[in-house]
Amino acid sequence: MIQQMYPAIAHRFVYELNKDMQFAAAHYVPAEQAGKCRQLHGHTYFANITVAGDELDASGFLVNFAILKQLIHDRFDHSLLNDDSDLFDDERPDRFPTTEVVARTICELVQAHLDGTANRPRCLQVYVRETPTSYCLYRPKDGESL
């Protein structure tokens, strides 16, 4: 994994953790304006997930790193993102597997898990690097339900 510094988000939580991971996945963007990206191609995605909260769980974790890996890496690694019809859609632009949508979707998956925990931490941001020169940062709005 490339050692990187990610943009920090200001918050008032006591704890913050960041989980880096990478996954290899293919996709295509089903839009005329996508140019070459309309064709099936792959990337080694680098993702950073920022979770924050005030309380630890019964194991002393804000969230177990292994759970984050299971939620994201195990689902996306060596997949065709477009085939995951629960998350992505070839008809709705807000669900095309672009870098922006992948970042938002990772945040939604993580927050859905966190909402079911007793300590209820928040996924504050997701950083997704698709290529060495292109990345997206997604931050849900304060109070936004995911």
Rank of each mutant, 00 (worst) to 15 (best):
L62Y: 04
V63G: 01
V63R: 01
V63W: 03
V63E: 01
N64A: 09
N64W: 07
N64G: 06
N64V: 08
F65N: 05
F65E: 06
A66Y: 07
I67C: 09
I67F: 09
K69I: 07
K69F: 09
K69E: 07
Q70P: 01
Q70M: 06
Q70F: 03
I72T: 01
H73N: 13
D74K: 02
D74N: 11
F76R: 01
D77R: 04
D77M: 10
L80D: 02
N82Y: 09
N82G: 12
N82F: 08
D83Y: 08
S85V: 12
S85G: 08
L87W: 13
F88R: 01
F88I: 04
D89W: 11
D89R: 08
D90C: 10
R92S: 13
R92F: 13
R92V: 13
P93T: 15
P93H: 15
F96T: 02
P97V: 04
P97H: 04
T98I: 03
T98V: 05
T98K: 01
T99I: 06
E100S: 10
V101N: 15
V101P: 00
V101G: 00
V102L: 15
A103G: 13
A103R: 02
A103M: 12
R104Y: 08
T105P: 05
I106F: 06
C107S: 14
C107I: 03
C107F: 06
E108H: 09
L109T: 05
V110H: 06
Q111Y: 13
Q111C: 15
L114Q: 03
D115V: 11
D115C: 15
D115F: 14
G116N: 09
T117H: 11
A118K: 13
R120A: 14
R120S: 11
P121R: 10
R122A: 08
L124V: 07
Q125E: 11
Q125C: 12
Q125A: 12
Y127S: 04
Y127C: 06
T131W: 02
P132V: 03
T133Y: 10
T133D: 10
T133G: 03
